[in-house]
Design a binder for these strands. Structure first.
Lengths: 348, 348
DNA sequence: CGACGATGCTAATACGTATTAGCATCAATA
DNA sequence: TATTGATGCTAATACGTATTAGCATCGTCG
């Protein structure tokens, strides 16, 4: 049995250097305030002993005394390292890790959060939130009650993705889906499209709401703007609806649905964008094999992760105050699936 | 400025319930030893107050007092979330996260470790190792000096992948490359192959050494067994060497090299396995596009991650003692690239 | 009725660091 | 010589939990 040898503490250093523990702490923290002075000779002596013993401060004790940690918690509503091909969080985590490294912070993954009703919960018996100085929240939908409690407790956190108020505003770094979708709609209208359709997944998540809103607002310029749910329906049935409605441009929330829709169109002897323009509203979250370069936009996921950590860090160290909410612009992707409606209109 | 409202402590609970802080701690820890007794009524009262206030123990203080944490550190010599397609660590991390979740542990990623000479270092000014109860080490090569220091400090850790002694044995969960390669060699010999070649990357890592050793030992039964380095050479040049040597079966350490070799063979009007059998010694670490089903073996990476956490956890809680070293078997993969040497021998 | 064991709780302390008030010393000044 | 100010350090304490020795009370038994 390896009985852990007690580690070197400031007390040990102090004894060896013939000073008090307080002095060691002061030397270590490079304190040189007006009312704290250490003779150069003493300082050197202490530093020499520290170097000899290989002393390293106990981060736990330090946290207990100083109240912060340089640890950023990361709470994901699903495993951070998924085993399948679907990897929704990955790009966010790339950005999070990158900035954490730059800021000299460690990342604490709250893998211990137990799963209740199919989802992880932040708050539970013996929750470990306080181990971190603050926390990044990742998830398509985040429980409003949990956000509420975070707010109430005054715990520093940042959501990745815009969030509705949860008994108080929620700090976040999100993507501006509404504008991105709006721009897409405008460019379709500019090309002559008048009959538009929004194909949603029927999700109540903010990210879905924002896209719908962006569509609805910008599509007022069009002659017709229907909203359909693709949940549980196959692409052929959806395509039937679109043709019946004489839709010329479809805005598709789910990337895989767009792929399926293009395929169904082609199978029917029609073409994209000849007979139907298909616009995607984000990047694929699962690996979908397709040769098609869809027109749509790119979500700055890595940047969202980076900035979430950046803002959180500044909130923690007090250098920024007040509510932090950021919406980052999405980058337009010029593909080959947005055309003019001429042929489609003609043909019908 | 949101001045963080002081969190609820055991002292607060104690005051509200009219007991001492010690009693609260005892209730929380469900202590019921012979010399510690709490009246049922008192216990209920305390628990009620705890429920009302939503108290949660400060894990930092807990760790300071009780010396452990249910936090597993994860040290990766490269980013845990890589941005490119190469994702060497991912399968390990899947297993690590899975077992950590089952064991109710959180994972601390040591992203703060600074990069020196192109690699992260565990030990540095202000290293945070002690925040975790123990640590998992991931990396193709791990600095022996750092392992040495971990051993010296008596810090509980587990390497993923077999490691040579570093001034003392190193605990690990590894894959049995030597046996896996040995079995491949034997099955090639059983099919009649007599002239074998090992194509290595020229790496000094243990994982490379083990493969080489497995090859060398089992290949003694063959007429010829050469070892070549593919580092910095193109597949055509390597193929020239193989043909010159009348090699009939090539054992290729790096998956991408195997892909390139098969392509070069085909381009030359020869075939795999008709003219040359090509065996792979592990899974691809980068996404390599190929239609070929190579014969080789699968490395149980997820299982290695899982067991590393499992063993580490048992070491930490004292339920297992002594040196822990495990080698897991690799699973043979029956592909289409191992044939008989007849045609190859004939043709030459 | 005194001794004693069982019961239920608390006081005190440890863990290792950071912070602050303040003590001792000495030189410079009045 | 007494006073003041600067200098260099330490004692004491806080942070929030876990643990342990031990105190007070009560019933039982000899």
């Amino acid at each position: 049995m390896t009985s852990t040898p007690r580690r070197v503490t400031q007390r040990d250093i102090a004894r060896l250097a013939g000073v008090s523990q307080a002095t060691v702490s002061l030397v270590l923290n490079n304190r040189a305030d007006a009312d704290v002075r250490i003779a150069l000779e003493t300082r050197d002596r202490v530093l020499r002993v520290i170097a000899e013993t290989g002393y390293a401060a106990d981060p736990v004790a330090r946290r207990l005394a100083a109240r912060f940690n340089r640890i950023i918690g990361v709470f994901t509503y699903e495993p951070a390292f998924p085993s399948g091909t679907r990897d929704f969080f990955h790009p966010f985590l790339v950005g999070i890790e990158e900035y954490a490294e730059r800021a000299g912070c460690d990342l604490l993954l709250f893998t211990s959060a137990p799963v209740v009703d199919g989802r992880r919960r932040i708050f539970h018996q013996d929750n470990r939130l306080r181990l971190a100085d603050g926390c990044i929240l990742l998830g398509r939908e985040i429980d409003a009650a949990e956000l509420h409690r975070l707010n109430r407790d005054g715990y520093p956190y940042m959501a990745v993705g815009r969030r509705d108020d949860a008994a108080g505003p929620v700090p976040y770094v999100g993507a501006d889906y509404a504008s991105a979708v709006g721009q897409l709609v405008e460019s379709a209208v500019a090309r002559g499209h008048r009959r538009l359709a929004y194909l949603g997944m029927g999700s109540a998540a903010e990210s879905s709401e924002d896209r719908r809103r962006g569509f609805a607002e910008s599509a007022r310029a069009a002659e017709s703007a229907v909203q359909l749910s693709t949940a549980g329906r196959d692409a052929d049935a959806v395509l039937d609806d679109l043709l019946a409605d004489r839709t010329t441009a479809a805005f598709v929330e789910d990337y895989a649905t767009a792929v399926a829709l293009e395929l169904a169109t082609r199978r029917r002897g029609l073409s994209v964008p000849g007979d139907l323009s298909v616009l995607t509203l984000g990047d694929p979250t699962v690996a979908v094999p397709t040769e098609i370069a869809f027109t749509g936009f790119h979500i700055p996921r890595e940047e969202m992760g980076r900035q979430a950590v950046e803002v959180l860090a500044s909130v923690i160290d007090g250098s920024s105050s007040g509510l932090q909410q950021r919406l980052l612009p999405c980058e337009p992707v010029e593909g080959e699936t947005l055309g003019t409606p001429d042929r489609a209109v003609e043909r019908r």
